[in-house]
Amino acid sequence: MQKSLHIDPAKCTGCLQCEMACSYEHTGYINPSKSRIKVFNFEHEGRKVPYTCTQCADAWCMNACPVDAIVIDSATGAKVVREATCVGCKVCTIACPFGTVNYMADVGKVQKCDLCGGDPKCVSACPTAAITYVDADWTGLDRMRAWAAKANTATVAA
């Protein structure tokens, strides 16, 4: 089964455990400035929103890359940057409509979410289940269930 990251901003408290876990997985140390998931704080609305790559099916970044450095991980469906191939031209960062591919000036490459090979560390780090990893075909399941629960049907047929 292919899975997707599923984010529920209403549950996010802004603790940044996801950013720490992401950076540790990819760099070997704790550094939110290297995280591929970012939590945005809309202070005056009291909202915190984690945001990262949605792994587009027909990925703009992948299509735009002139050296084919972005490839599909067949196990997870993630669009993954092959660092050895990436030349740091940044065209993918322009192509991505959501801004989730970013350039790392210190190494001259781009980085984006790779779903950690199928075990996303942001998910296991999140203390409130604001970030989950669910069946890609059923990301609407929780919302459907919530609405289904409101259906006012009689419990016993007449």
Binding site: G28, Y29, I30, N31, S33, K34
Partner: peptide, 8 residues
């Protein structure tokens, strides 16, 4: 700060 914590 963008250097992170490496010294664990």
């Amino acid at each position: 700060g963008t250097q992170g914590v490496s010294g664990i």
